[in-house]
Simulated scan of single mutants.
Amino acid sequence: MNLTVRNIAESCSEQEVREFLKHELGHYAKNVEVVGAGTPGAYATVELDADVPYVGDVIARQIHGRHLGGQPLEASADLFSDEPPAAQ
């Protein structure tokens, strides 16, 4: 499951964004990828270490509106992925 974080300030470096998200998400942040740091369209994708869809939504709500570089972040969870469902 992935979390997408948008509205990242142009003044924020890739390292700042990565450190902020890892700090805020703790053990849920499996992998953080920052795209376009220093540009108006910068965003980050976080691979979450969670198997239950509602966890991603709760995490997105907690990050949404937090300020980084003086701008409120926008966050949303991708409830669906290209991976096949796990066998039960």
Score class of each variant (00 low, 15 high):
residue 56 G to R: 09
residue 19 E to G: 00
residue 45 T to R: 15
residue 27 H to Q: 13
residue 69 G to N: 05
residue 44 A to G: 08
residue 6 R to G: 04
residue 74 E to T: 12
residue 56 G to I: 06
residue 84 P to G: 09
residue 60 A to M: 12
residue 43 Y to E: 02
residue 6 R to W: 03
residue 62 Q to S: 11
residue 22 K to F: 06
residue 55 V to Y: 02
residue 69 G to F: 02
residue 88 Q to Y: 10
residue 58 V to P: 04
residue 62 Q to V: 06
residue 55 V to T: 15
residue 37 A to W: 01
residue 54 Y to F: 13
residue 77 A to I: 01
residue 78 D to A: 15
residue 39 T to V: 01
residue 34 V to C: 10
residue 39 T to E: 11
residue 59 I to Y: 01
residue 58 V to Q: 15
residue 10 E to K: 02
residue 39 T to K: 14
residue 45 T to P: 00
residue 84 P to V: 07
residue 26 G to L: 03
residue 50 A to T: 05
residue 73 L to P: 00
residue 81 S to R: 05
residue 8 I to S: 07
residue 33 E to S: 12
residue 43 Y to I: 01
residue 33 E to T: 14
residue 86 A to G: 10
residue 87 A to F: 11
residue 81 S to W: 06
residue 51 D to W: 01
residue 7 N to K: 10
residue 60 A to C: 15
residue 60 A to H: 13
residue 29 A to F: 02
residue 52 V to F: 06
residue 36 G to E: 11
residue 16 E to T: 00
residue 68 L to D: 09
residue 19 E to I: 10
residue 39 T to I: 06
residue 69 G to E: 04
residue 6 R to H: 13
residue 59 I to L: 15
residue 1 M to V: 02
residue 47 E to C: 01
residue 55 V to S: 12
residue 47 E to M: 03
residue 23 H to L: 11
residue 10 E to H: 01
residue 12 C to E: 15
residue 51 D to N: 06
residue 52 V to S: 13
residue 11 S to H: 06
residue 33 E to N: 12
residue 27 H to R: 09
residue 7 N to D: 13
residue 74 E to S: 09
residue 4 T to G: 08
residue 64 H to Y: 13
residue 34 V to P: 13
residue 66 R to C: 10
residue 74 E to F: 07
residue 27 H to V: 00
residue 50 A to V: 05
residue 56 G to Q: 05
residue 71 Q to I: 00
residue 57 D to I: 07
residue 52 V to L: 15
residue 85 P to A: 14
residue 63 I to F: 04
residue 67 H to R: 11
residue 14 E to T: 09
residue 17 V to K: 11
residue 63 I to S: 00
residue 22 K to N: 14
residue 41 G to E: 10
residue 84 P to L: 10
residue 86 A to Q: 14
residue 54 Y to M: 13
residue 29 A to N: 02
residue 14 E to H: 10
residue 1 M to G: 14
residue 46 V to G: 07
residue 22 K to I: 01
residue 42 A to V: 02
residue 77 A to F: 06
residue 39 T to R: 14
residue 47 E to D: 14
residue 23 H to G: 14
residue 39 T to W: 07
residue 10 E to T: 08
residue 78 D to G: 11
residue 33 E to K: 15
residue 23 H to T: 15
residue 77 A to T: 07
residue 56 G to W: 01
residue 57 D to Y: 05
residue 25 L to W: 03
residue 29 A to D: 00
residue 52 V to W: 04
residue 20 F to R: 06
residue 68 L to K: 15
